[in-house]
Simulated scan of single mutants.
Amino acid sequence: MAALHPPKHETFDPTAKTNTDPKGFVRQVETYRTTDFGLYMDRFADHREFDRLQSWLLPAFGLRVSIFHYRPGHERDQRLYLDIGEFTGPDTDGRWHSEDWYLDLIDRPGRGLELEDVDELFDAHAAGLLPREPAEAAVHIATRTMVGAAAHGNDVQAWLASEGAALTWDLR
């Protein structure tokens, strides 16, 4: 069981080319790209398990879709990692913001999306850290995403493209 914590917030600043993580660490971003459906970010990571992070913030879908580039010895069989929450931007200063609503989906080759951290969502709601409306929205977003991906051969990117959000990734 994960430690109980409030929703995690993150800031994405394309003008300054920075990403401020939930702990307040500011990291330089190599690439930001804005489209009519979201914000793409590509940055180096100083994490012991991965050295690069690529993400799409998709406000209309309530999703952050990420590719983690794992270091040797830490590889995982996941293609994509999807955070569920509220993603907004740009604000009047050009920044984008995220609030993570605990639930995550893991996209692994040859399988349907796997839902994780249901316990965290319920614990946070029970502790008053996440009101009922966003908790319910998180479940609806996860369900819609899982059903959409399943209808497209368990391909979440094909589903997103069919909904007008064709994700492109910088090759590394």
Rank of each mutant, 00 (worst) to 15 (best):
D46E: 11
R52D: 01
L63R: 11
I67A: 03
G62W: 03
D83G: 06
R76H: 00
D91W: 03
R95C: 13
A60H: 15
V65N: 03
Y81A: 10
L57W: 08
D42N: 05
S55C: 05
R52V: 00
G85W: 13
D83S: 10
R71S: 09
D46Y: 08
L58R: 12
R64P: 00
P90D: 04
H69G: 00
R64I: 10
F68Q: 00
G110P: 03
I84F: 13
G62A: 15
G85A: 01
F44K: 03
I106R: 07
L103S: 02
H74V: 02
G85L: 09
L82T: 00
M41P: 02
H74M: 01
W96V: 08
L82I: 03
I106F: 13
F61G: 07
R52K: 07
W56N: 01
S55H: 00
D107P: 08
D93E: 15
R95H: 11
D91H: 04
Y70N: 05
Q54Y: 02
G89F: 02
F50K: 04
D77R: 07
Y40P: 11
R43S: 10
S66G: 00
R64W: 00
L53A: 11
L115M: 11
F68H: 06
L80K: 05
R111E: 14
P72W: 11
V65D: 01
D77E: 08
R108Q: 14
I84A: 14
L103A: 02
W101K: 10
P72Y: 10
F50E: 02
E49I: 08
Q54P: 10
R111D: 15
I84L: 15
L63M: 14
R79V: 04
S66E: 01
L105H: 14
V65H: 02
V65W: 07
F61V: 04
L53W: 01
L115D: 02
H69N: 10
P59C: 15
F50W: 13
E86I: 10
S55T: 01
G110V: 11
L105T: 07
R108D: 12
Y70T: 03
F50Q: 02
L113R: 11
A45Y: 05
R43E: 12
V65K: 04
G73S: 09
W56P: 03
E49K: 12
